[in-house]
């Protein structure tokens, strides 16, 4: 066989290998991105659940103090002015606002022991503790997936594929130092 034919076959095989690798890497990155998106929607669900439970709690404490209801109304207004789909940064902000309301409610509970004894309120507190756990789980799952995706994006040679398909590093759902502390639940 002529030398140039062999060279052509070798080049062809090499190109095919590169192409297969490129497609496999591209699919892998896209799958990771889908996982990140799924995890992000988990955060959305948990945030919405927390918002709903908090609104019920605010409704219960309304009889004891007007301040929390006012704060909550402000959060509702803030949310209404935001697009349906929040960015990660906006979600962090939303969580922080809810943390604030939660802390305020805890202060009210401290000042009104009758409230602590109310069955409805206790159930809501139990509910919010669970929602909180789900939110933490979603946040950790999101960050774990983001970490995996980001490290693939910056690692050579996957970084070449990532750049070709315009895939960029994803932001983490970070809690600032003040927010990192668990919201204290009083029972």
């Amino acid at each position: 066989m002529e030398g140039w034919i062999i060279a052509l076959i070798v080049i062809g095989v090499l190109l095919l290998v590169v192409l297969v690798w490129f497609i496999a890497t591209m699919n892998n990155l896209r799958q990771l991105k889908v996982k990140v998106k799924e995890a992000e929607s988990g955060i959305d669900v948990a945030l919405t659940k927390r918002f709903d439970t908090l609104s019920k709690m605010v409704e219960t404490v309304k009889g004891y103090t007007k301040h929390e209801a006012k704060t909550f109304e402000n959060v509702v207004k803030w949310r209404q002015n935001m697009p349906d789909e929040l960015t990660v940064k906006q979600k962090e902000e939303f969580m922080e606002k809810m943390n604030q309301i939660q802390s305020d409610i805890n202060v009210v509970v401290e000042n009104y022991p009758d409230l602590k004894a109310e069955k409805v309120f206790t159930n809501l507190q139990r509910g919010i503790a669970d929602v909180e756990e789900h939110l933490q789980a979603s946040r950790r799952m999101f960050n774990a997936n983001v970490s995996r995706l980001n490290s693939r994006i910056v690692t050579f040679p996957t970084s070449i594929v990532a750049a070709k398909i315009n895939m960029e590093k994803y932001p983490f759902f970070e809690a600032e130092p003040a927010k990192r502390q668990d919201v204290k639940m009083e029972f």
């Binding site: 995890a39 988990g42 756990e133 789900h134 933490q136 789980a137 979603s138 950790r140 799952m141 774990a144």
Partner: peptide, 11 residues
């Protein structure tokens, strides 16, 4: 279910 794993296995 990945979420359940994170929900159960807290740090």
């Amino acid at each position: 279910n990945e979420h359940t794993a994170f929900y159960i296995l807290t740090p």
